[in-house]
Amino acid sequence: MNILAIETSCDETSAAVVADGERVLGQVTASQMEIHRQFGGVVPEVASRRHVQAITRVVDTALAQAGLGFADLGAIGVTMGPGLLGALLVGVTAAKAYSLATGLPLVGVHHIAGHVAAALLEEPDRPPVRPPFLCLVASGGHTELYEVDASFAFKRLGGTRDDAAGEAYDKVARLIGLAYPGGPEVDRLARLGDPGRFSFPRGLLDDPSLDFSFSGMKTAVLVALDKLKRQGQAVPVEDVCASFQAAVIEVLVEKTRRAASMTGHRTVVVAGGVAANRGLRAAMQAMAAEEGLEVHFPSPALCTDNAAMIGAAAYLRAQEGRFDTLELGAYADLTLEEWQSGRYPMD
């Protein structure tokens, strides 16, 4: 079954055509990164305006790449939440209108389920992963550990109590004056610095739960920078990045190790924008080798927001015969539990 998928939850307008939930036949993402860089972050109204401008063109180009027309499709998948409400609405509205115009059934997809489903996509250097598995989702909006069962149902094991990992990266990047989005730049600079130069706290590392906390790390970086400034010293940017990254990665890796031993899962998927972080990839691989686990990362291009991952998740939902009506809404705060149960919150 070929699925046309649409993703507009934040600042990327993306459309893809995915065959059988695993082969990407076409994908186009109109990135707004350059626009939002001027503002130092995503401005919701600007993002929504760009989405409505680009929405049908990305769909048209994705279909052209796939060499398919609307008649060759079996369903339309769309991100229904969580995310920026105005941005989500553009994608949901277009998807519902495509559904009305073509008679194709509609599948609303949870954005995080999409990030995880990115691991189910076939890639040149890696076979697709099949559930069950343990999953760490780390992005600008989320840091969560889930058990994913054979039917792709999610059970939350723990998650951040304050900032998401990606959010901490962006905040620290701003503190040291790096351009938005700062995460990838921190990752790059970290490889040039000394991770032992500063000792930043490992939030909740000693806590028995599988929860995370990153706000303390950000504060510790701020304190360290202030101290350097008071002493009239230049900021060793590379060392700050390396030390900060070491702290974040240690907690992410250790909690994942614990979750694997607690649940007995041998397969681990790391998804979300932060999964593109090279430092995290290396540390997870090393931990997996020690523990005899198999760890999978979607390719960096499929870790950031994209429609192909939404198509993969929509396929599984469609296989279960779970479709949505033309009344489908968009939800800024949709939880995975709500999406799984199909009982969406009332407006």
């Binding site: 929405i55 048209d60 509205t93 277009a94 209108a97 115009a101």
Partner: peptide, 19 residues
């Protein structure tokens, strides 16, 4: 309404495109 106007415009574009 900014959000409101995008609803008809996005829907019209998708219908115009698909049909």
């Amino acid at each position: 309404s900014y959000t409101g106007v995008r609803i008809a415009v996005a829907a019209a574009k998708a219908i115009g495109h698909a049909c």
